[in-house]
Write a protein that binds this DNA or RNA. Structure first.
Lengths: 119, 119
DNA sequence: TTATATTTGTCCGTATGTATT
DNA sequence: AAATACATACGGACAAATATA
């Protein structure tokens, strides 16, 4: 098995891939929670956990009683040495392998110094 | 009544204030979910929702089977090539000369590519 | 080392409220 | 007014990882 994974992680990943591949375009509405329940056989709790994850990753936005919608890709900003970034909300760092890490609000993001080659 | 006990937002706010006021110091463990249940009379679902909110705000970090711990603030984070950062709130970039620039929420911060010397 | 208790993780079901369509 | 869809909240059960004895 590729990995049984949990319920909500698997579902979040599947939807995320549909977004990445363009099957779900920006502005488009995701299936309702009930529809996702029926299609996947998962409970509503699990479906909602998956959507919450997508929200955390900034891929979708949920509007009360209207649905969950795919967000467009945000702009990129290239941070240069000497510059720093902060925000009044938590910062989510996405690593090279796709894993994420949450930093407290107020953390200062700077460009890491280059590693010396002889490490 | 011991308190209003209305919902996960209230609980999250209460704990958040304890963190802001220093009653809960960085590194300190929050009461367990069961303890919070008993103290507040809320269900575990609601208690967990409150903690999830604190996590979303970057105020705490939860370690499996160990507990939820208060995070320190004002730390630095060195961003490395390949990593990216976003936040659900506006991002403020501070330049080398001290000037600031505000970027919309969702903007992806990446390490700017090194400029070739002959530019 | 083994065993036990604690604590969080995941998952399910149900009910009701609220906002949108 | 009615149907749809998300928000909140309760309850229970078992798994998994950690800490402790």
């Amino acid at each position: 098995m590729t990995g049984p994974l949990n319920g909500w992680r698997t579902l979040a990943e599947q939807i995320s891939e549909q977004i990445s591949s363009g099957c779900l375009a920006p502005g488009q509405r995701l299936p309702s929670e009930e529809q996702l329940q029926q299609r996947t056989g998962l409970s509503r709790t699990t479906v909602r956990a998956a959507i919450a994850e997508l929200r955390r990753l900034g891929q979708v936005e949920t509007r009360h009683s209207a649905g969950t919608f795919v967000l467009g890709v945000g702009d990129m900003f290239g941070l240069r040495p000497g510059e720093s970034v902060t925000a009044s909300a938590a910062l989510v760092v996405t690593g090279v392998d796709g894993t994420t890490r949450t930093l407290p609000a107020g953390t200062r993001i700077v460009v890491a110094p280059a590693e010396p080659p002889g490490s």
